[in-house]
């Protein structure tokens, strides 16, 4: 983990402690830098949109969710190279968006599978009815 040279050792310790605690407790202090993470807002919005678009067989939800996941992965990689330069709130937004995107993607995927299964069952039913009619049984 690279930390900019202008930070004093004391700052480094504080930053490291902060990063260790970050996953387990909710930090009330803002020790992060001044730049928001790229796409944090976009990920959050896309993540929430992904659950609201189930009316299109889950396809739009799946697309939004996957885009949000890809963006969040990119942003997380950027964050990990240099955590101290980004704002804590944008990191929290990114994580929240990521959770929403994961849930939205999974649900959209399940819904798509359910629809495909339903079409398959309907198709078999129609097919057998049609076949029965043709065979005269």
């Amino acid at each position: 983990m690279e930390i900019p040279n202008e930070n004093t050792p004391n700052d480094q310790q504080v930053t490291q402690q902060f990063n260790q605690q970050f996953n387990t407790s909710d930090p009330t202090n803002n020790l992060g830098g001044g730049t928001p993470l790229p796409n944090a807002t976009a990920v959050l919005v896309l993540g929430i949109v992904s659950i609201a678009t189930c009316w299109c067989y889950g396809i739009i939800g799946l697309t939004c969710g996957i885009i949000a996941l890809v963006l969040s992965n990119k942003s997380l990689a950027i964050y990990k190279t240099n955590p101290s330069t980004f704002t804590v709130s944008s990191y929290k937004n990114l994580n929240a968006g990521r959770i929403c995107a994961i849930v939205g993607t999974i649900l959209s995927g399940l819904h798509l599978i359910y629809i495909v299964a339903a079409i398959a069952v309907l198709g078999i039913t129609f097919g057998s009815v049609l076949g029965g009619a043709l065979l005269g049984s």
């Binding site: 929430i48 937004n93 994580n95």
Partner: peptide
Amino acid sequence: LLFHLKFDFKHGARSIVIGFAFTT
């Protein structure tokens, strides 16, 4: 979400996730 993006609440992100989970 809109208010959080505008005013940046301290527990905004977490409450959005909770609201989202509840909705889902």
